[in-house]
Simulated assay, not measured.
Amino acid sequence: MPTDLSTLRLPDGFTDLFTSRYVELDGLRLHAVTGGDGPPLLLVSGWPQTWYAWREVMPALAREHTVVAVDPRGAGLSDKPDDGYDAGTLATDLVALMSALGHDRFDVVGHDIGMWTGYALAADHPERARTLTVVDAIIPGLTPTPSFFSPAAVNQRLWHFGFNRLTDLNEKLVQGREHLYFGHQFATKAATPTTIPSYAVDVYVNAIVTDPRGLRASFAYYRALDETIAQNEHRKKTRLTLPVLALGGARYSGPLVAETMRLAADDVTEAILDDCGHYAAEEQPERFTEVLEDFLGRVGRHPTPGQGRSA
């Protein structure tokens, strides 16, 4: 995946607003794309994506926020060490990243696995997260575990959890077929098989293929699930008090996102985007931005947590 933003297909004027940069932490180098002005807003992508997942919403968000779209450990251009893929370590990485960028307190948006990381960040570092927005996922160790013999529709959505946790067979089966495997994720989780454009799928797949550590790292988040689940079973003993926006795509997770967060948080705003699958920021960027900005604006005007709301 190239470091030069000009080599990527991006919204008009994107490179005038944003800069691609590396941030050196304690033994870890993370890649982020930053720009804008205003309160800091951290965007955390999911599997198997990179910061590029946020490209369509970043220019609008940058009008009111200092946007930080990160490649977490193991993704995109960031380092891919052998371990540290549990949610707690990923969250600690991002707290250190924001400190290095000069942001002590910030809003967090996490999609997919980024939702796991966002929850861990809000729970483990409550002094750092002002708000938490979670996008179309469940949280292992918090969401009730599906039955082993789940209905076919559930299995179609969750089968990759078991496959990705395998120790090495998955890598042998996927290597050389990365476009088939990862392309299938986007084709079946979005509202339609072509909703996520082929050029974007190529960016995500190439980020994995071109780095010899990329495929292993992409499965490492799932191989660390035992640790993440144990952490979340402990985290849920203390409820979140910060404002939470739970956003689901009507054609994928829908109300399950808010149902999950109500198990852990007192102040949950629910939003469901019509005609949207798993990838809200790419499938419905204008509506996604509108809902997020409305939530952040209301929190700014009313900083004291209230009762759960619907958007």
Rank of each mutant, 00 (worst) to 15 (best):
F14Q: 06
G306C: 04
V95Y: 05
L158Y: 12
R105K: 12
G248L: 00
P40N: 11
H302L: 13
T269W: 01
L90R: 03
Y199A: 13
M1L: 15
N206C: 04
R235I: 00
T3F: 14
T238I: 15
W54C: 01
S310T: 15
R73T: 03
Q156F: 09
Q156P: 03
R105F: 05
P151Y: 12
V67N: 03
R239N: 08
A137H: 01
N170Y: 10
S20E: 07
R301I: 05
L225I: 12
G118C: 06
L240E: 13
L225T: 11
T194A: 10
T195P: 09
G38C: 09
D16F: 12
G214Y: 09
Y222I: 13
G162D: 09
P126V: 02
F18P: 02
T260N: 01
D202S: 15
Y199V: 15
N155M: 10
H103T: 11
D136S: 00
A217D: 05
F18A: 05
L30F: 14
H184A: 11
A230V: 10
D226G: 15
P39Q: 14
T34C: 12
G249I: 01
L273T: 00
R165I: 06
A129F: 03
G297K: 02
D267W: 02
L242F: 12
L142K: 07
K80Y: 02
P197G: 08
G88V: 10
D93Q: 07
E293C: 13
E178D: 04
R165L: 11
V268A: 00
T50M: 04
H65R: 08
T241N: 12
R21K: 06
R223C: 12
L30C: 14
D107H: 08
A217S: 10
L5F: 02
H160P: 04
L41Y: 00
M1F: 14
R262V: 08
G300Y: 01
E171S: 10
D275A: 00
L263A: 15
A200G: 05
S150I: 15
A122S: 08
H184T: 13
T188W: 02
H125P: 06
L41F: 02
A265C: 09
R223G: 09
R216N: 11
L173T: 14
E259A: 06
R301T: 08
A250I: 00
V95K: 03
K237D: 13
T143S: 06
A265L: 04
L8A: 15
T210C: 09
L121I: 02
H65K: 06
L121N: 03
A246I: 06
P255A: 06
A75T: 11
I139Q: 13
W47D: 03
E286R: 02
N170I: 10
P193A: 11
P255R: 10
G300I: 01
P140S: 08
D93P: 06
M261K: 15
Y204K: 10
T133A: 14
I139M: 13
G300N: 03
Y279I: 11
P305H: 14
A123Y: 08
H184I: 11
A62S: 15
H65V: 07
G38T: 05
G13T: 15
G277Q: 00
D267Q: 04
T289I: 02
G183P: 06
T228F: 00
L97Q: 10
P39F: 12
A187F: 04
I196E: 01
D274E: 07
A152F: 05
P193Q: 11
W47R: 01
G84H: 11
G38K: 13
L296N: 03
G102I: 05
F149T: 13
E233S: 04
N170F: 09
D294W: 07
